[in-house]
Amino acid sequence: MSDARPALTLYMHRDCHLCVEARADIEMLQRELDFDLREVDIHSDEALLRAYCERVPVVALQGRELCDLHVDNPLLREALIAAGAARAAPES
């Protein structure tokens, strides 16, 4: 297990309501587990747009795609724990 926080990437598009829902699901998970979230708008890169246009939101962990169209919560939680995500500190 590595000491570094796992890095999650959310490929999204700003006018996509499925992406908004995915971000909300991931933020819920951040209350439970400690990991970094990076959002990438697919319109920032022609190659990303071609790859993900009809599939956003796409969630990738350490560069590996985990799910598209929606967040599979159990799968993502399991993958984050396997990648070394520690329990998040309880909110005061």
Binding site: C16, H17, L18, E54, R55, L69
Partner: peptide, 8 residues
């Protein structure tokens, strides 16, 4: 939304 994307 997913149905539309798949049609596309």
């Amino acid at each position: 939304e997913i149905a539309s994307r798949h049609h596309l």
